[in-house]
Each structure stands twice: as structure tokens, then as C-alpha cells.
Nucleic acid binder design. Structure first.
Lengths: 174, 174
DNA sequence: ACGATAAGTATATGGCATACACTTATCTGT
DNA sequence: ACAGATAAGTGTATGCCATATACTTATCGT
């Protein structure tokens, strides 16, 4: 939807705070109130933004082996966060019961199943994995890692992936 | 400061959105503008709230062995999140270069040093650990785990601690 | 070409953070 | 004890914000 994509562009170019109904309307060349034909209110607009983000972030890669698949997921999510730093924080704050959120969960769960994690454990493991990755990406764009250099943050990310992969492997023998 | 503690109470009793300068002033029995004698603006007020939260969360426990110390840190942080669910999300969104934030970092770093992690690795490890714990606590209070039962979330938390502890141990032999 | 439905407009309201100018406490040194 | 300074509080006003209501104009299927 035009309204959502322009809202995302506005958030990227300026700040999330700059995404006001009036500013968005002006960008689209319509009146503020015209927006309410497309979204029911501002919360709905922000939900749409989150959905757009998730859809962009999650790229299924079923052809890869599980460690690469997990790494690809994490890398895509991180890249999306950096592309849309002001919208990304909304991801953790809005309950993600949407289609795109479900797809993200499935992507990890499939990788875990591939790795050989017992089916009754995949859900739990998937939650922990996605939480850690989300936490990292959010911290990075929110400025919690500002004291670190870019290469240092990259190294941190690599270590995170390593630890997560190891923890999966160690659970195969349990 | 009275202003901050009442703001925190207000946020706990109602929502973060309910913490408006007018509402806070009314609770304190003063005019809205009187607040500006104590905080320079609303952002400053929210920063103060975050600081208050961190100070409450971080309880150094130097007498404990490192695994228990790490667990205590994580448990305290999680408990604080649940006590102040509406303010907690601000933690990840505000760059924590404050005194209380530094103390939180030190608490983990000391545990890592205790465990025998080489000094040049403790900072990185500390960042990853605190990020994972913060991500979990935030997800929980933000509603991302609403589909799970309370015992399930507790089990998730236990597994998180287990994974983190294991990853520290495996790094001792590397 | 007409009637319905979708899209857009005009105007108004109440809540919000905060600027500015002023007044009233409270504290400190003599 | 008091004068002056400093801290705390007040009153009023402004501009931005989301959004309600009522109305008008396109557009599209038949």
C-alpha cells in the first residue's frame, strides 16, 4: 500500500517521530484526514509498518544447510534493522501474531528440525534464538553499541552466531 | 527525587502513555510547569526513569560463584522488568552511558573474569550476555511471549541461562 | 449513463509539551 | 534577625498532534 511504503520511507529519511499523520499526508499530496480511509488510526499505521518490515526481513532459504540457514536469517534481520533503524524497535514492542511473524518463526523452526532438534524442543529453541538475534539487532540500531566500532560490532555478531550454533549442536547429543 | 519516583509509580499503575507532564504534576499537587524546575524536559524525565530502574535492577552479589552470580543478575533484571513493564522497554532504546549502566556491565564482567574468561574477551562476552538477557526480559514484558504460559516462560528463561553458562564454559577451553 | 462505493476535503476539538514572564518560599551569611 | 539571593512554583499562551463529524468529488460496475 502506498500509504505504508511512504510512511516507511519517511521514517527512514527522518525519524519515527517525524511520521505524523500530517507529514505523511503532505508527502502523499492529500489532506491529513484522507489517510483515515486507508488506516483506522495511527497504531494501525505503525502495525502496518512492522508487517512491511518483517516481510522484507524474512527470506526463506530452504536450499541451505541449517547453520548457514540460521546465519542467513540472522544476517537478513540485522540488515533490515540497519536499513530501517527507526521502525525496527517497534518489532519488539508489538505482539507479532501476524503472517510475516509466523513465517519468521517457521524459518528458524525448520532450520532446527533440519539440524535434528527433537520436535518437542524446536519451539522453545526457536524463541530463544529469535530473541537473542532480535535483541542484538535492536541494541545495535538503538545505539546501545555506539561505543563499539563497526568491525567490533561485526565481530560481536559473528560470536553470537557461533554461540547459538554451538548451543544447538550441544543439544543434539543430549 | 520525588518527581522521578512518582513518575515511576504512575507508569506502573497506569501505562507509560499515562505519564504526561500534566498528570504527573497533578499527582504531585503542583502545576505542570513546576516540573521543569526538576527536569529539563520530558526526555530527561524518561532518562531519569531508566536510571532509577537500572539502579533497582542491579544488585552486586560478589559472594556468589560465577554461575550463580550470572543467574542472579539475569533473575534480578527479569524481576525488575516485570515490576515495571511499561518503563523497561526504554532501557533498550536509550543509550546507557550512565553510572548504573556501567555497574551492570561490571557485574557481568566480574563474573566472567571469575569464571576464567581471558581479559581481552570479557567485554565482548559481556555485551552478548547482557543483550540476550535484556532481549528476553523485554520480549516477555512487551508481550512477545504472550502465547506461552507462565511456567513455559520460566522454562525458557532457565534454558537461556543454561545456554549462556554453557557457552562461557566452552570458551574456557578455547 | 447512473447509482453505488471509494477517496478526498473542510472544519473543529481536546490533549500534549513547553516557552515566557511573574510571584512566593526558603536558605545563607552577617 | 534580616537582606538578599536562589530555588520552587504559578498563569497564560502557543503550536503540534491525533482524530471526530459532515460534506464533496472521483471512479467503477452494470
Amino acid at each position: 500500500m502506498r500509504v505504508l511504503s511512504e510512511a516507511l520511507a519517511l521514517a527512514d529519511e527522518r525519524e519515527l517521530d517525524a511520521v505524523t499523520m500530517a507529514a505523511l499526508a503532505q508527502r502523499l499530496g492529500v489532506t491529513t484526514m484522507a489517510l483515515y480511509r486507508h488506516v483506522t488510526n495511527k497504531a494501525d499505521l505503525l502495525d502496518g509498518l512492522v508487517e512491511l518490515l518483517l516481510a522484507e526481513a524474512v527470506q526463506p532459504a530452504p536450499q541451505l544447510a541449517w547453520p548457514e540457514r540460521l546465519a542467513a536469517f540472522a544476517t537478513d534481520l540485522r540488515a533490515t534493522a540497519r536499513r530501517h533503524p527507526s521502525v525496527f524497535p517497534l518489532l519488539l514492542e508489538r505482539p507479532a501474531a501476524t503472517a510475516a511473524a509466523r513465517q519468521a518463526r517457521d524459518e528458524i523452526s525448520l532450520a532446527l528440525a533440519d539440524a535434528g532438534i527433537p520436535q518437542q524442543d524446536t519451539d522453545q529453541m526457536q524463541r530463544l534464538l529469535s530473541t537473542a538475534i532480535l535483541g542484538f539487532a535492536l541494541s545495535e540500531v538503538a545505539g546501545r553499541f555506539d561505543a563499539q566500532t563497526a568491525p567490533q560490532r561485526d565481530a560481536d555478531f559473528e560470536l553470537l552466531l557461533e554461540i547459538l550454533t554451538e548451543s544447538i549442536q550441544s543439544r543434539l547429543r543430549a
